[in-house]
Amino acid sequence: MSNILIIIEHQNGILNPDSFGLLNAGIQLSRSIGADIHVSIIGQNLDTLSQEVSIKGVHTIHTTPANQPYNHDLYIPIITSLHAELNPIFTLSLHTSTGTDYAPAISSLLDIPLLPDITRFDYTEQIEAVCEMYSSKLCVKISSTSPAILTIRPGSWSNDHSPGDVIINPFVHVIDEKSFNFKVKKHEESPPGEIDISEADLLLSVGRGIGEESNLELIFSTAESIGATVSSSRPIVDRGWLPKDRQVGQSGKKVSPSIYLAVGISGAVQHLAGIKDSQVIISINKDPLAPIFDISHYGIVGDLFEILPALAKEFS
């Protein structure tokens, strides 16, 4: 029986819910190959975490206690020694700030191929995995030899799961903290700003398409007319035009308004991850191929500088 190794992601003992999608990706693969699913959990709160991921389809959970948060100097020796023991045909991680911090190193150290940011795959005689290029405007089906390591895009597989009978195996590993060349000092949440965009019911969200900082005036005046709160995509915050607490997306805030009105936002994956819980998404963009239209309910291919003043007038 061959093995598949899945590295679970958590923040100080709290499971990243996308870990279930990751497990389901592995389970799909295990059915095609006829492989056992082995799961690695490293860190704190291992009993609770093991219980949570004891789902149908998982064979064994390997738990390695460590009294500290994620750090690649902590994870990599543990994963490589578990890899040596299990000799998995595939190793799966999430394509997140954590997964992308160690998976490419594992691939280098073990000299095995890395298939990054995978959104779906099939396995017949070899892995055929799909990732995206050019801001989701191109799908690329790729393959590699195995063993290989895959990083899975969060949200690409369902998080559905049911409890299962799983073997728990303590995988003891001596941690030599003194040898760490990377040291985590602390974690801090961005300070809350004056406005909590995650509470807003109607968001007018602005992106690169606004062109110049002075055009934000139009956004704020329109927002006032229609009763919306202003939020933005990352580039607006990167340029210092709006404070960080206005930023929607993976590294900013996740929002779930009744209406998300996106103007001049093309829709990078990281942005879309932050808005998918909105009830209604309306997008205005000049580019008919902008990825934001793929998850919008209503769309206008047009010029925000013509449409927003007309929209404000509707409320005067």
Binding site: T96, N181, F182, K183, V184, K185, E188, S190, Q250
Partner: peptide, 15 residues
Amino acid sequence: IRELENGVDEFAEVT
């Protein structure tokens, strides 16, 4: 400072 998800910053030191 490393930017993690959901507005969390990690303060770290690397040699």
